[in-house]
Each structure stands twice: as structure tokens, then as C-alpha cells.
Nucleic acid binder design. Structure first.
Lengths: 206, 206
DNA sequence: ATAGAACGGAACCGTACGTTCCCGTATGAT
DNA sequence: ATCATACGGGAACGTACGGTTCCGTTCTAT
């Protein structure tokens, strides 16, 4: 496969990669920045997506699907509950879907499919959380929403290049993990945990 | 003191409060939003500050000074080293200077005074960190820069109104605090800690 | 009553960005 | 070899937004 079709197929991927990188770094970035990063013209973008919003929806959807995939993989693990959970957290941090999904929330009109996938990802997160708590591995005063917010905090770290950022995120994930594990003595956490509704409210545009 | 002078003095404060609130919520907010929130006209702003940048510098400077004040107060405490440190962290979270100072970094040209205060705040942070580690209360593989980044993560939490946000920040501060304390068993944190230089690099505009 | 400070807010202007449009180019069929 | 065409590059367009300026108004002090 070569020639025009090949370039088009390559551009499909180039554009998505570039868009992911650009909007992760700056959710308000202009569409021209994506084109430049991808090394293509603007019309190559508009040939594929009718608008900026459509591109954002695509990115967000892909991120959500990746999130679901990672979580399902963790749920499929049979070994130690704590290790599965810790691995799940590392997987989410590596996938880096929170940066995009959350920071883009509210900048576009969520599609039906997006809503569906969001619901599914929520259910999966609840499931792995429940399982880990029931195994007595995760301190029980930490809720699913706590974990979500914690992952957002870690995603808020952005320092140096991509590699360094990933490294630091894992550093702080390890720190947080130490606090989540059940063995050591903990004080009860203060304040009611974040409500699901509080988190989902941020998705309404405007 | 009443009449015009009084209103002017009141507006001084109103404007600063509004600016703090508005730019904390959205660092890229237009200056008109500040005027509206303060309930004054735009010219009331421009009478006091020659430009938006000047206002941002003022806000940033005030935040830094508050940070210094809180840290000095914690350093002055004589009691248990860990309690002093934990109180210091709570004080910083309450003062909420990180949101502004960090998120505004790079959006304006730092003044000489800003540099000076930043250096002083860095020295103070190093001092209280050193003191706490030497007292054996803070796990020694956590650096000053780690603490700075941790505080930034907590400042990245913004959910619901101001009160709720503060509540959640304290919740996660408590969680992090559990991981920082020395008694329980910890794994060595992975990856080199953030360097001072990495953090300061973000201050250059552009 | 009047000068003048402080203000409110409309108007101005430059910029930035999403989108459209036109043209060059390479491709694949004839 | 030629030609019709799909594709992509990037300039051009229109619009929205936001910093700054400016002018008319209001209120105070004398």
C-alpha cells in the first residue's frame, strides 16, 4: 500500500496523535496548532472532521474507551486484590486519559455515545473500587469519587517533557498509594467525600 | 471619613478581592469580569493599575507575601515538629496562594520584587522542610520540591463553591499527610524528585 | 456655584481563531 | 502521455473577544 491512500491513512493517525498531544498540553489550543504539530495543512483536518468540536468529541471518546479498556483489564486479574488495584491506578496514569477527558469537559456538547461510555466507565470504576474495599485492601473511608479526584490531581502534574511528567506522576501516585493501603494506622479523613453529582456537573457546557 | 474618599478606599479593597476571586477561578479571565464582580466600572480599575499585567503582579506579590507570612508563623512555633509542619500545610491550603501564584506564572513579566519574595519563600520552605526532616517526623525521601508539587496538586482541586473546594482540599491534604508522616512503613518513592530548576522554569513568560 | 476628582461604560482597535476557499500537485485510469 | 480528480497546503475571511482609551456624568470640597 503506497501513494495517496497511504499518505491519507498515515495522516489519519498523525492528526489524532498530534491532536491528543496538543490538546493535552493546552485544552484551548487553536486547531492550527494541531495541523502544524501533525505536519499537515488545515484542510487535512477539516476533510476528516467537520469542526473542532467533532475532533474534541473523537478525542474524548477515544480516551474514555481507553480508560474502560484499562479498567476491564484490571478487573480481569485474579491475583492479589491490592496489587490489581495498584496496577489499575498505574495503568490509568500511564494512559493519561484524565487530562484530556476532564480538561475538555464543558468545552463541547457531549454526544450520546460519550454519555454511554462515561456511564460504563463509572460503573467499572465502582466495581474495582468495591472489590478492593471488600478484600480489605483499600481503606474504606476512601470512595470511588475520592479515587477519581485523586487521579485528576495526579493528572494535573505537568513538568518538563512528557517523559518527566510521567515519571513525576508515578512518583506521586506511589506516595498516594502509600496513604491508600490498609495496613498502616490512619485517621478518619475529614469532610464528606466528593459526590458523583459534583463531578458530573462539570460536564455541562458553558 | 466618608463620601468619595471612603468609596475610593472601599473600592481599593473590593477590586483586589474581586480580582483574586476571578483570576483564581480562571487565570485567563478578562479584566471586565473583575470590574463586574467588584461592582465597579472598568475605569475604576485603570485608575489604580496602569494595565492588566500590573494588577496580576500585585496579586501575585500579595499571594507570595501571604505565603511567606504563613510559613514564618509555622517556623516560629516551638512545639512538636510534625504538628507544626502539618499546621503549616493546612495554613498554605487555606491561604490558597498556590492557585494564583502558579497558574499566573508565565502570563506576565516577573518584577524584581517578585523574584526577591519568591527567593525568600523558597528559603523559608526549605527551612521548615529541613527542620521537620531532622526531627525525624517527615519521611526523608520527600523533598521540598515534592511538597511544593503536592501543594499544587491540592490547589488544582476545584469543585463546587469556594467552601466545598476548601473542604475537599483539606480532605486530600489529610490523605497526603498520612503518607508523609514517618511512623508507618513506606516504600522508597520512585523516580528522582522534582528539581528546583524544573519548577522555576515555568516562570519565564511565553 | 464651581472646579475637579472619581466613576461608569460605550467605543476603539488589534488580535486570535474557526472555517472556507482556491489553487497546485500527485495519482490512477484511459 | 494525458486527463479528470481527490487531496492537501495555506492564504483569506469574518467574527468574537478583550485590553485600553475616552467622554460624559456624578458627587465632594470649597
Amino acid at each position: 500500500m503506497s501513494g495517496r491512500k497511504a499518505q491519507a491513512a498515515r495522516n489519519d493517525e498523525l492528526i489524532l496523535q498530534a491532536a491528543r498531544a496538543v490538546f493535552t498540553a493546552d485544552p484551548g489550543a487553536p486547531i492550527a496548532a494541531v495541523a502544524e504539530k501533525a505536519g499537515v495543512g488545515i484542510s487535512a483536518l477539516y476533510r476528516r472532521y467537520p469542526s473542532k468540536e467533532a475532533l474534541l468529541q473523537k478525542l474524548c471518546g477515544d480516551g474514555l474507551k481507553l480508560y474502560i479498556e484499562v479498567t476491564e483489564r484490571a478487573l480481569a486479574e485474579e491475583g492479589d486484590a491490592w496489587e490489581a488495584f495498584a496496577g489499575y491506578l498505574r495503568g490509568i496514569v500511564d494512559a493519561d486519559t484524565n487530562s484530556l477527558t476532564i480538561k475538555l469537559a464543558g468545552t463541547f456538547h457531549p454526544t450520546e455515545e460519550l454519555h454511554h461510555d462515561a456511564a460504563r466507565s463509572g460503573a467499572l470504576a465502582t466495581e474495582i473500587h468495591r472489590r478492593t474495599v471488600e478484600a480489605g485492601a483499600l481503606r474504606p473511608d476512601v470512595t470511588v469519587a475520592d479515587i477519581a479526584l485523586l487521579l485528576e490531581q495526579i493528572a494535573s502534574i505537568r513538568l518538563g517533557d512528557e517523559k518527566r511528567t510521567a515519571q513525576l506522576r508515578h512518583r506521586f501516585l506511589a506516595l498516594a498509594t502509600d496513604a491508600l493501603r490498609v495496613p498502616p494506622g490512619h485517621r478518619e479523613l475529614p469532610g464528606p467525600p466528593p459526590e458523583d453529582e459534583e463531578l458530573s456537573a462539570r460536564w455541562s457546557p458553558g
